[in-house]
C-alpha cells in the first residue's frame, strides 16, 4: 500500500496501547512518515510528559501549538483546558472560575462519567472540523483507560439526556465511528502478556466503541537472522582461529552468551507475532528494537524508514 494512501485513510489517528510499549515513539514515527508523504501533521499529547517532543529534540509540548519538525506541529490537550475552552465557546466564561474554585466542577465531572474524556475528544473533533492539519495524531492514554476514553461518549449519551454536553457526545460518537474520519493504531511489544492484552483491547475497541482499527504496530523486534548453527564459545574460538585472530576464553563466552540471548529472545518474539496474527486478523507493521540509549531525531528517522517499508508491504485492501 502506498504511504500517501495510508496517511490519508482517515484524518484522525489515535495511537493506543498498554503503558511502556512505545506508543509515543510510534506516534512520532507515524508523524514523520506522514509529513514525508506530504501531509501536514498536528500531534496531540493527551496525558502530558510523554517525551514526544524529546523524540524530535524539542522542549516539552504546551497547550499552545509549537513546531516539532518541518510539517509537524504538536500540542497538549488536557481536560481542564478543554473545559475552559468549552465554557468560553458556550458563553459561560463568567461561571468557569466559580465552577473550579467551589469544587462544583469535581462534583459535576463525577456525576457525568467520562465528561473529561468527552471534553478532550470534543476538542479533537473541533480541531478536525476546523481543518487545522491534514492529519491529527492522538497519543492516547494507556490501554485500560484507552477503552474507557473511547467509550466515554456512548456512556455519556446514556447519562445525559439533554443539553450541549449531550450534543458534544453525539458529535464525538459520529467522529469515532466514521472510519473515513478516525481510526485507532494499536501498539504492542512481541511478548506474551502485551499480546494478550492487545487482543482484548482490539475487540473491545471494535465491538464496544465501534471505532475502526488500522494495522497493529509491533514495536521493538530484533531484526538480525539467528546465528546458524547456534553460537557456542567453541564455535567462536574456531572462527577466531580460521580468521587468524586472537579471542580469549572469557570474551568467547561473552560473545556466545550475547548471541544465544538474542536468538532465544528473537524466537519468542517470532512466536508471539505469529500468535498475534492468529488471534487478531489485522495486518502488522513491525518496528525494530533499537540498541541506542535515547530516542531522538536519529532514532525516529530509522524507525520511520521501517514504518514506511511496513506500510508498503500492507495489502491494498486493508485500507479503511
Amino acid at each position: 500500500m502506498e504511504l500517501e494512501r495510508f496517511c490519508s485513510t482517515s484524518r484522525v489517528v489515535i495511537v493506543a496501547g498498554k503503558g511502556g510499549v512505545g506508543k509515543t515513539t510510534v506516534t512520532a514515527t507515524m508523524a514523520l512518515a506522514a509529513s514525508r508523504a506530504g501531509r501536514s501533521v498536528l500531534v496531540l499529547e493527551i496525558e502530558g510528559k510523554s517525551g514526544l517532543a524529546a523524540a524530535f529534540g524539542k522542549p516539552p509540548l504546551t497547550y499552545e501549538e509549537s513546531d516539532l519538525a518541518p510539517g509537524i506541529r504538536g500540542r497538549t490537550l488536557t481536560a481542564d483546558q478543554a473545559l475552559l475552552d468549552y465554557l468560553r465557546d458556550h458563553g459561560l466564561r463568567r461561571i468557569s472560575k466559580r465552577l473550579v474554585s467551589s469544587g462544583a466542577l469535581d462534583v459535576v465531572a463525577t456525576a457525568v462519567p467520562g465528561m473529561q474524556d468527552i471534553l478532550v475528544l470534543g476538542k479533537v473533533k473541533q480541531l478536525e472540523r476546523a481543518g487545522v492539519a491534514d492529519l491529527l495524531i492522538v497519543d492516547a492514554p494507556a490501554a485500560g483507560h484507552a477503552i474507557s476514553f473511547l467509550l466515554s461518549a456512548r456512556g455519556l449519551l446514556d447519562a445525559v439526556r439533554v443539553g450541549p454536553i449531550r450534543k458534544q457526545a453525539q458529535e464525538v460518537v459520529e467522529l469515532l465511528t466514521d472510519p473515513e474520519r478516525c481510526q485507532v493504531l494499536l501498539v504492542t511489544l512481541p511478548e506474551e502478556t502485551p499480546v494478550n492484552e492487545l487482543v482484548e483491547t482490539a475487540f473491545s475497541i471494535e465491538d464496544l466503541a465501534g471505532v475502526a482499527l488500522g494495522p497493529v504496530v509491533v514495536n521493538a523486534m530484533y531484526q538480525a537472522d539467528p546465528f546458524d548453527p547456534p553460537l557456542t564459545p567453541d564455535r567462536v574460538l574456531a572462527d577466531a582461529t580460521a580468521a587468524e585472530r586472537f579471542v580469549g576464553d572469557i570474551e568467547a563466552a561473552d560473545l556466545a552468551a550475547a548471541a544465544t540471548f538474542r536468538d532465544s529472545r528473537a524466537e519468542i518474539q517470532i512466536a508471539q507475532v505469529r500468535r498475534l496474527a492468529e488471534r487478531l486478523p489485522l495486518p502488522q507493521i513491525q518496528l525494530p528494537y533499537l540498541f541506542t540509549a535515547d530516542i531522538g531525531p536519529a532514532e525516529i528517522d530509522t524507525l520511520t524508514g521501517a514504518f514506511e517499508r511496513g506500510v508498503g508491504a500492507l495489502p491494498a485492501l486493508t485500507a479503511r
Partner: peptide
C-alpha cells in the same frame, strides 16, 4: 588475513555483543 566467512561471522558476533553491552 584469515578466512573471509569466519571473519564475517566473527564481525557479526562482535557487533551483537557491542549492541547488548550498549544496552
Amino acid at each position: 588475513p584469515g578466512d573471509a566467512a569466519a571473519r564475517a561471522r566473527l564481525a557479526q558476533t562482535y557487533a551483537n555483543l557491542a549492541d547488548f553491552r550498549t544496552v
